[in-house]
Design a protein around this nucleic acid. Structure first.
Length: 519
RNA sequence: GGCGCUAUCAUCUAAUGGUUAGGAUAAGUGGUUUUCAUCCACUAAAUCGGGGUUCGAUUCCCCGUAGCGCUACCA
């Protein structure tokens, strides 16, 4: 298809707290779509509900999107701790647009053209009406009492409200007949009978617009070409279309996205696990992992590729390939993707990512060399899924482990044999000279570790052969005495890594501790 | 209650008017291994139900069922 119009998309959250995982996907799809079409992606803040504002949530959202790598070409951003805005279509915060009288103006224009009307009904009356309708199993809908007021009635009520210091709300007058069709880019055509549509309030008593008016006015003036939002908006889209028509404006294109749901298929909720993007970050999933995971929920390139860089996503993304059905968030797959990413990183990259998680676990990494951290990271990366697991897994590299003596004995061995093996290992390490490698490979810790590990392995295996041991009755206690864990990387790598930072003395010390433990 | 959307292995999904319905994750088994992880091989696992159209339907249509969404002076 030939693109004749400039593509402009937006992500338009309410600043009511954290970035939801579903919100992240919506923002991501809008971003990918805009980038893939060389368009513009902007951020607009929908803060027309003054009661639901949460202090600091805008700053929070901005920082989450920044770490996630989702960029906005226009909209609010933070500079020197202050919120600023960039772009030619501002302000990008609806409360500021309201101050400019923008929404009021168009609401009044619609009233003047009889496409909207003042409604003087009290909230109490509306409540009661709805209750009755529900009791009678009728669809709850405004009964349009104020729609046909005479000019005199309106003047009188207006005067009364004025006296009481109140404002009436403005409702949109939905056409009584006909139907409205949404041409959705993902769901196709969806038809709504106008008569089942409610006369929605478009301007509230506090002078703020409701979502329905604000979204139309802003998308129009911000020259948005494509609205990409959650499927929960489908039922109000015909109302938006009708407002566009009443205002004489060209509507945007619409693309509604299926929802992300809990394992029991209910709407993603806090109760059933993490919904805030920050929670996933804290759990140790890196931004690129989350992006990769979330993009596969509801979209796939129709090939067998599963791992994507952001650049590849931009190149391959296509709205037409978005699914229509809800997707369950599968933590297993997330872990797998995370593991895949971690495996492809270098020890250095992982070590950088890991530092905050080590700190979190109370490990003072600053006291250890970069080379050591790199080597540890390299050793752990193939068994790591979440970065947050690193503390528990690698504690023994930073302090001598504590463990139960019985753990030292391999299942096919016994106490005496184990003690003997450990004593033999002590002698072996005492006679081993590792310093030559340390000098030769000082600038390359990974090389040091692999060469040293090979050497240790050779020596230990030779001893096993010479003394007629089983591999297990020597290797298991060696590994446990160094790590204190029933599961860990292999003994040769662990020993070599320990030697890098603490010398073979540390190995001998731990072996001796183990001998003592066995009594 | 009304309106709307959706429906392929447990999960994410691919495919087609004619296939042994494919892949991935998870699960299980075996191999490698001192353990864990990795890796390799293998196994089990799906077209919601009923009608129609058709030589032939999982695919197109209708009905049903189920799930979800919306039904505010919230977004």
């Amino acid at each position: 298809m030939i693109q004749t119009k400039t593509i402009r998309t937006r992500f338009a959250p309410s600043p009511t707290g954290f970035v939801h995982i579903g919100g992240l996907r919506t923002a991501l799809f809008a971003f990918l779509f805009a980038r893939s079409k060389h368009g513009t992606n902007l951020l607009r803040i929908e803060d027309t509900d003054q009661n639901r504002l949460v202090e600091g949530s805008l700053e929070n959202m901005l920082s989450v999107f920044q770490t996630m790598g989702i960029e906005f070409d226009e909209g609010p951003y933070v500079e020197n701790g202050k919120i600023k805005q960039k772009g030619e279509y501002g302000p990008y915060i609806q409360s500021e647009r309201k101050e400019q009288g923008l929404y009021q103006k168009y609401a009044e224009q619609l009233v003047a053209e009889k496409k909207a009307y003042y409604c003087f009904c009290s909230e109490e009356r509306l409540d009661e009406m709805r209750k009755e309708q529900v009791a009678l199993k009728k669809p709850p809908m405004y009964d349009r009492r104020c729609r046909n007021l005479t000019a005199d009635d309106i003047q009188k009520q207006l005067a009364d409200f004025n006296l009481a210091g109140k404002n009436p709300v403005i409702r949109f007058a939905i056409p009584l007949e006909g139907s409205t069709v949404i041409h959705d880019l993902i769901y196709g055509d969806i038809t709504y009978e106008n008569k089942i549509l409610d006369d929605q309030i478009i301007l509230k008593a506090d002078g703020f617009p409701t979502y329905h008016l604000a979204v139309v006015v802003d998308d129009h003036f911000m020259e948005i070409s494509h609205v990409i939002r959650g499927e929960e908006w489908i039922p109000s889209t015909p109302k938006h279309l009708l407002i566009y028509e009443a205002l004489g404006w060209q509507p945007t294109e619409f693309a509604h996205l299926p929802l992300i749901v809990n394992p029991d298929k209910t709407k993603l909720s806090k109760r059933q696990g993490d919904v805030a993007v920050e929670d996933y970050l804290k759990a140790g999933y890196s931004p690129e992992v989350l992006i990769n995971f979330i993009v596969m929920l509801g979209w796939n390139p129709k090939t067998e590729q599963e791992i994507f860089s952001l650049q590849q996503l931009i190149e391959q993304f296509d709205l037409a390939k978005v699914n229509k059905s809800n997707a369950v968030l599968d933590k297993n797959k997330l872990d797998w993707i995370s593991g895949q990413y971690i495996k492809t990183k270098t020890g250095k990259e992982i070590a950088e990512l890991l530092k905050p998680f080590w700190q979190e676990a109370g490990i003072k990494v600053a006291k250890f060399s970069e080379e050591y951290l790199k080597a540890i990271a390299a050793l752990e990366k193939e068994r790591l899924k979440k970065l947050s697991e690193i503390g528990e897994r690698t504690k023994y590299f930073f302090e001598a482990p504590d463990y139960d003596a019985s753990l030292l004995i391999w299942k096919k061995s016994d106490k005496e044999k184990t003690k003997q093996a450990l004593s033999d290992l002590v002698i072996l390490f005492e006679n081993m000279d590792l310093s030559a490698f340390a000098k030769a490979t000082a600038d390359d810790p990974l090389h040091f570790v692999s060469v040293t590990a090979e050497t240790i392995e050779k020596w230990v295996k030779k001893m096993i052969a010479d003394k007629n041991y089983d591999n297990g009755s020597v290797l298991w206690p060696l590994r446990v005495s160094l790590t204190g864990l029933d599961k860990s990387p292999g003994p040769f790598e662990v020993a070599a890594t320990l030697a890098l930072a603490l010398g073979k003395e540390e190995i001998i010390k731990r072996l001796n501790t183990a001998v003592v433990k066995l009594g």
